[in-house]
Computed example of a mutant assay.
Amino acid sequence: MGTKVNFPSTDHLPQTPLLVVDRAALTRNLARMQALCDAAGVRLRAHGKTHKCSTLGRLIIEGGAVGLCCQTVGEAEAYVAGGITDVLVTAPVPPWGPARLAALAKTGATVGVVADDEGQIDRLSDAAVAAGVILDLVVDLDLGTHRAGAYPKGALKLARAADAAPGLRFAGIQAYLGHLQHMDDLALRQTADEAAHATLKALVAELTAAGLAPPVVTGGGTGTHAYDLASGVYTELQAGSYAVMDVEYDACGGPDGDWTFEPALFIASTVVSANHKSHVTVDAGFKAVSMDGPPARVVAGAAPGSLWRPMGDEHGMIAHPALIDVLKAGGRDPLGFDRAVAAADADPDRATPLDAPKVGDLVWLQPGHCDPTINLYDALHVWDGEKLERWPVDGRRVSL
C-alpha cells in the first residue's frame, strides 16, 4: 500500500487532531472492491462498522453495493435515518433490540438480523408480529472466531425455527471469519479460509436437502476477500476496512500478497512542543488514536522513519529516527525515559536534528486500526485536493 497523498495545508484545517480522508484514494478503493465483486458474481454488502458514516454508506451503495452491514442496533438506526434502506445487523442483539429493529422495518426499510439460538429467534418473532412487519433472519455461524454464532451442526435446527416463526423470513446463513483477517502467514490464512468454505458448502447442501436452501450466504472480509470471492459459496461479501485501510492490514499483507487497496484515512496532528532533541510533541494521543492495534504510522510531516508513540490522553511524541536509541534506552520505565531524554538533551555531541518538525508544523499519521479510531471522531473530513467536506460519523454510539 502506498501513501502518495496531497495532504491539505494548515490553511485548510479548522483544527487538529482531525480525521482526514483522501477522497481520490477512497474512490479508487470503493471502485476496486465493487469491480472484484461484480466479476465474481457476488453482491457487496459493505460493513458499516468500519466508518459509521451514512454519507460514505450511500456512496458505497451508489457504486453498486446492495446494502450495508451493521454491528449494532444503533448503527442500523443511523443508517436508515441517513437514507440507507437495506441493512443487516451482523451480531446477535440484546433483548432490548428486537423491538427497535421491528420499528425500523416499519419505516419501509429492509431489515435483517442474525441469531445463534432459538431464544433470540423467538424474541425477534414476537417483536416483528407486534409491529406488523417482516424481519429477515440470518443464522449466524461460528467457524472459529468463537465470539458469536452457532456451530454448523446446529444450523439446520435454527433454520427450521426461523422458517416457522411468524414475522420472520429465513434469509440465509452468515459466516464471518474474524480470526483469519489479519493472519500474517498468507498460506495458512488461505488454507484456513478454504477449509471454512468447504464446511459452508456442506452446510448449504444439508439445508438445501432439507428444503431450506439459504437465499443468502453472507460473510467474508477485507483480509480474505480474494479467497472469499473465489470460493463459489458466498453470495454476499461483508468487507469494510478496504474503504480506508490501516497499518494493521498493511502489516499482515493482502490475500494475494500485494494489496489492491490503498491508505485513505489519516490523522492530522500539530506539533505543540519541541524542547527535546529526541522528539517533538503533537496534539494526538490516546483520545485521537485507537491503541488496540499497532501504533499509528508517521506518513508525512516528519523525517522518514520517525515514530509516533502515545504520551497520554491528549499528546503523542514524534521520535526522530536518528535518536530512537533514546526511546530504547528509556524502555517502558517512566523514570528510565526521563533519564534517557535528559541525558540526550545534555549531551553536547548530540544535535537537534535539522529536519525535526517545528512547533506549529503538521504531522500526518495513518491509524493502526481504522474502525475504533474513526469511532473517536464526530466527523470524517474528506479532502479532494482543493477543499475539505465534512461527513458526520453519525453511526457512533448514542445514549437515549
Rank of each mutant, 00 (worst) to 15 (best):
8 P>G: 11
9 S>C: 12
13 L>S: 12
17 P>G: 04
19 L>I: 08
21 V>N: 00
23 R>H: 13
28 R>M: 09
28 R>E: 13
29 N>W: 07
31 A>G: 08
32 R>M: 13
33 M>Q: 03
34 Q>G: 06
37 C>Y: 04
39 A>G: 09
40 A>K: 00
53 C>E: 07
61 I>R: 06
63 G>L: 06
64 G>N: 05
71 Q>F: 15
74 G>E: 14
85 T>F: 14
85 T>C: 13
93 V>Q: 15
97 G>L: 11
103 A>W: 15
104 L>I: 07
106 K>S: 06
108 G>Y: 13
117 D>Y: 11
117 D>S: 10
120 Q>P: 04
122 D>G: 11
131 A>E: 13
132 G>S: 07
147 R>V: 08
148 A>M: 13
152 P>E: 11
156 L>C: 09
157 K>I: 10
159 A>F: 07
164 A>Y: 04
165 A>D: 00
167 G>C: 04
167 G>L: 02
168 L>K: 09
169 R>S: 12
170 F>D: 01
177 L>S: 11
185 D>A: 04
190 Q>K: 14
204 V>N: 08
209 A>C: 06
222 T>K: 08
224 T>C: 08
224 T>R: 11
226 A>R: 15
229 L>I: 05
231 S>Y: 09
231 S>L: 06
239 A>Q: 02
240 G>Q: 02
240 G>S: 04
241 S>I: 02
247 V>H: 10
257 G>N: 14
266 F>S: 05
269 S>V: 05
275 N>M: 11
277 K>H: 09
279 H>K: 06
281 T>W: 10
283 D>Q: 09
292 D>V: 13
296 A>L: 08
298 V>C: 09
303 A>S: 12
309 R>I: 10
321 P>K: 02
323 L>H: 01
324 I>Y: 11
327 L>D: 02
331 G>P: 00
333 D>C: 03
336 G>E: 00
336 G>W: 02
351 A>F: 09
359 V>D: 00
359 V>P: 00
363 V>I: 06
364 W>T: 03
364 W>C: 01
366 Q>N: 13
367 P>Q: 03
367 P>Y: 02
386 E>R: 15
391 W>N: 00
393 V>T: 09
397 R>N: 12
398 V>C: 02
398 V>W: 03
